[in-house]
Design a protein around this nucleic acid. Sequence first.
DNA 1: ATAGGGTTAG
Length: 720
Amino acid sequence: MTSNSTTKTLVKTFLRTPHSLKTKFQAKQLLAQFLKTQPYSPSSTSILISVYSNFNLLHPSLFLFNSLNSPPLLAWKSIIKCYANSGHFLNSLTCFVQMRSFGIYPDPNMFPLVLKACVFLKNLRLGESIHGCIIRLGLDFDLFTGNALLNMYAKFQSLQPNGGRKVFAFNVFDGMPKSDELCGTSAQEKGASIIQLESMTKVLEMMPIWDVVSWNTVIAGNAQNGMYEEALRMVREMGNANMKPDSFTLSSVLPIFAEYVDVIKGKEIHGYAIRHWFDSDCYIASSLIDMYANCARIEDSCSVFNLLSKRDDISWNSIIAACVQNGVFDEGLKLFRQMLTAKVKPRDVTFSSIMPACAYLTTLHLGKQLHGYIIRGGFKDNMFIASSLVDMYAKCGNIKAARWIFDQMEHQDMVSWTAIIMGYALHGHARDALLLFKQMEMDGVKPNYVSYIAVFTACSHAGLTDEAWRYFNSMSRNHGIKPGLEHYAAMADLLGRAGKLEEAYEFIGSMHIAPTGSIWSTLLSACRVHKNLELAEKVANEIFKVDPENVGAYVLMSNMYAAARRWKDAAKMRIFMKKKGIRKEPACSWIEVKNRVHTFISGDKSHPLYDRIFEALKDLLEQIEREGYIPDTNEDFHDVDEEQKKYMIFSHSERLALAFGIISTPAGTTIRITKNIRVCVDCHTAIKLISKVVQREIIVRDNSRFHHFKYGKCSCRDYW
DNA sequence: ATAGGGTTAG
């Protein structure tokens, strides 16, 4: 009995000073004692609920709350807070509205919570009606409430474009809404964004004092809505008001300089961050990583990451994305593996960041593994991820899988359409690509800059000059897209491949932006294919004017001179190259066998199975010679005799990879090879015949497209 | 009460 009365006193003491409880465990013990010893009174129950909600113990709080017939303010407040803090914003708001219907008025520090819930549920209407409630209660002078309102209007401003949101009339004081109304996205009227901006200004004007949070909220609001200059102006003004920018301020400012590609200003901010000890802050670090990556300063991104003592999931995502966006794919994949080793769980963003690395490197096995992970993790409906999967499967040579993913998507956006169109284009299925483009337009999805690159790529690989012209002309007329370098390059390439060399030359000359070396280069290689040395010389001169270090042009000219037996001119080109110290990139092919990538360069004997590869090559050569193969040595310009040339072609990198693929995989397996430069004519002929004699499908991806070899034919119909 | 990372590109 004594012990019971002691407990009673103890419980009473705790209820009088609930803050003396320090752990969840103590709180739970208190509940047990309370249930044993106390008669239920609304006020003591409310105190207990508030204890639980402070520890974010939702279920015990609800248990007690439901035992009350007419809960007092403290009980409502605690339960609303507990719901909001455990992410149940809808329940939190429903509870708030219920409380109002009981005729209970909220107290000042409840508003920030419910406003946050409105932001989360994208429910502007409810937020506005709560704002009305705040004004009526005269609480708009409260700093915290004011800041929460500022935040709400700032967030809704950035939700504006492409609204189509459901409108419903609802007032906090009118009673209960249905739950689907509460989570529904709210009003989208014309000029709504301006209204929100005005609301923000009005709130700001009403507030008697502004603190750092007020400034940061408004700065972030401007920065996230593309009003960069206004945001920067406010940062300066904030300084004039004797308010020091903190880490929150910096993480609004850094993305602006990333967008501006202004590494000088970005570095200044980095310096400020170091001086104020913000550089070890994960938020600042990931913004810095992103800023440097956007400015093509990947080394600086890496050093920020390496100096970070604590890394969260977003720090990892940022550095992985930074590597992939800068073309450092191996490093990106390495970091991804390190992230997994460090037991950091990949998020949706991780997958859409890493996937392009698989696409560029043609590492299908890795892409498939990631795809498995995506399905298991429940990420497959994410638009970004699905688009990157479409792209990955297409680039890894599996256009059917790409199409399957594309068709599985619930909605297709412009990026996913563009990815699948580009996929078909790269595989030489020009008609399918153009058909999809029409379907996209019929679906009401507007093409953008990149979509048209895909269209021209498709036309280019099938020689569809008339269609290409039509699209080129309608691009700006129908969609207001001005042709840029990539479009000009694709058009020039298209005309060149189709043999319309003079037309291409004039086309490049008439561009409204200055042509680059790479645009002229597409025409130069067309000149080689169509053996027009005279025009080639003119084009090469243009290249050397804008890009005197262009390796490809020297090599190409040298080869063309050699083919025309103008040895002196050929030698001159080689000497120029030597003087400038520029070297040709070696031709290289790779193939995946049993989840490993095997790389070959031309004439390479270093592979452990080289002897067997050589035997296989000889064997294949005999077989295809029986099918009528005659080596075409025209494209090999080494100054050696024909027999040697035959041998040199015979050991081109793609053939080594192919022979290795044939001897190391079961009969009938599809072989996928990737090459860093264009396949030569002779290899193309040889691989066609090899596909026939070994009865296999062979897929070769070079630097610009796919070749599917089957039954002695290639999908490009010898046009590439 | 305020903050960070993502898909398509000859």
